[in-house]
Structure formats: C-alpha cells, structure tokens
C-alpha cells in the first residue's frame, strides 16, 4: 500500500528530521509508527500524505508517486492531522457534509454517507449540535468521521487519542478496529500510547531522531526481543521493546 525508499526531510534550517526512511505498509495493516517526541513522526506523515515534499527519496501509494499524482492520491487517502481544528460554528453534520462535498462525494450519496460515518463513530445523536459545544472526545470522533467521509482506502492518524480519557481511547480503538476489520481500511497510526498500539496494530515501526530502528510484525518483534529478556517468566511488552530500542545508544540497558 505504502512504500518509501530513503525518505529524507531536511528542513530549511538544515535540521534533518527524517533520515533515509524506508517503510513498507501492506494492505489491511494497522501500522503503528512509534517514536519519542521529535522523532519525526509528524514530518513523516506529512511526507506520506504529500503535504511536505521530501528533500530526498520518494513515497509510493498503490505504486503511484504521491507528489506526481497529488489529486488522485488525495481522494484515496484520509488524514487526521496531529493538531486538528474545527469550524466551531458548524454542527457535526454540517462539518461532515462540507468535507463530503469538498472530496467530491456524489450529491445523491452525500447525506447517506454523512449518516453512515456518524453512526460509525457513534455521533448520530450529537450530529446537530455546533462543534463549539463538543467535548474533546466528541471532536476527535467527528475528526475520524471526517477522515473517512470519502471512503478512503488508507488513513493516517497522527496521535488520534491524544488527551482522551481511558474510555475515550478505548472507544477510538474500537472504531479503528471496526474500520480495519469490517471496511478493510488500511490504517497508519502514530501514538505515544504503546499499550494502545500493541492492542490494535499488527505491524510496528520504531523511529528515533529521524532514523528507523525497527520495523516488523508486532509478534515477530516481541519474539525477537523476548528471547533477550533476562526474566522470561513474564511475557515481554511493546513498551519494554520500545524503551530498550530507543535508549540503546544512550546507556546500556537490559531488558
């Protein structure tokens, strides 16, 4: 689904935020993209969705260059950016209708589609309230609804559960799980919450300071590092792998 080769982003100030990143996301994956703050996750997503032009390397989605097929790719993907605002004067339904029209959903289907995504994110009863009166969790749901309004094959979610309470996180996870399993949407997700990632993702990549440290199926990853663990009676968690990998160079750390 997504393929990158030596993807590099050097910002105008000379800072290399992403360094020669080569990723492979397969159709049907829920792909967790992990890394500490400033690792280059948001930068990577912006290159994948075509908002940022990489200084080197290329992104292919369904075998097509993102930069060269901008319009076509954009209709194929949905993105929920990291810090994402809303038009507070619109109601949830109006907001979704706006994006349905913006993405060229055919006129006869617009209403139907809005109702469908509202149901998917469990916001039908709140659809006619202005977004300005929504709670954070409700906004995030509407955000996800907007991301999938045009039935994309692939969605990017940049920390979609940021600032949500455990119940809110859980709800979003369920929505994503449904989307993936029932509607076959490929999901590329970044998060700080390792538990969350390990619960819903099947593939994981770990980046640090713009460099890819690991990329593998979640199970293989756990197996690979599980054997390194000193105390093998307790199964290894993704969290342990993450800290092991991201702190490796700084100090010697044992699992």
């Amino acid at each position: 689904m997504i393929q990158t080769k030596d993807l590099t982003m050097e910002y105008p100030n000379g800072f290399t935020a992403v360094n020669q990143l080569s990723l492979q996301v397969n159709e049907g994956d829920i792909y967790g993209f992990l890394g500490p703050n400033g690792a280059g996750k948001t930068t990577t997503i912006r290159m994948l969705d075509g908002l940022l032009k990489p200084t080197a390397g290329e992104v292919l989605i369904q075998g097509k260059s993102v930069i060269r097929n901008e319009r076509e790719i954009r209709k194929m993907i949905g993105v929920l950016p990291e810090s994402h605002g809303y038009y507070n004067w619109m109601t949830g339904a109006e907001y979704l209708l706006f994006f349905a029209q913006l993405y060229g959903v055919s006129k006869s289907k617009q209403k139907e589609r809005v109702e469908e995504v509202l149901r998917l994110v469990g916001m039908t009863s709140k659809a006619n309230i202005p977004i300005g009166q929504y709670s954070r969790g409700m906004r995030q749901r509407i955000g996800i609804a907007k991301t999938i309004i045009h039935e994309p094959l692939l969605i990017f979610l940049d920390e979609p559960t940021l600032g949500l309470d455990p119940q809110g996180q859980r709800d979003i996870q369920m929505i994503l799980h449904d989307l993936n399993k029932k509607h076959g949407v490929t999901i590329f997700i970044t998060s700080h919450l390792l538990k969350e990632i390990s619960e819903i993702c099947n593939r994981v990549a770990i980046v640090k300071e713009g460099n890819l440290i690991e990329e593998d199926y979640l199970e293989s990853l756990l197996n690979k590092y599980g054997s390194l663990k000193v105390d093998t009676t307790v199964p290894i968690t993704l969290e342990e792998v993450f800290f092991y990998l991201t702190n490796q160079e700084d100090k010697e750390m044992n699992l």
């Binding site: 908002l51 994402h84 038009y87 913006l102």
Partner: peptide, 11 residues
C-alpha cells in the same frame, strides 16, 4: 484554528 491542514489535504 488549525483547520488549514485538512483544507490543504483536500483534493
């Protein structure tokens, strides 16, 4: 309002 990114991501 941080709504620009979604607008730019539209077709």
């Amino acid at each position: 309002r941080e709504t620009l990114e979604s607008l730019l991501l539209s077709p």
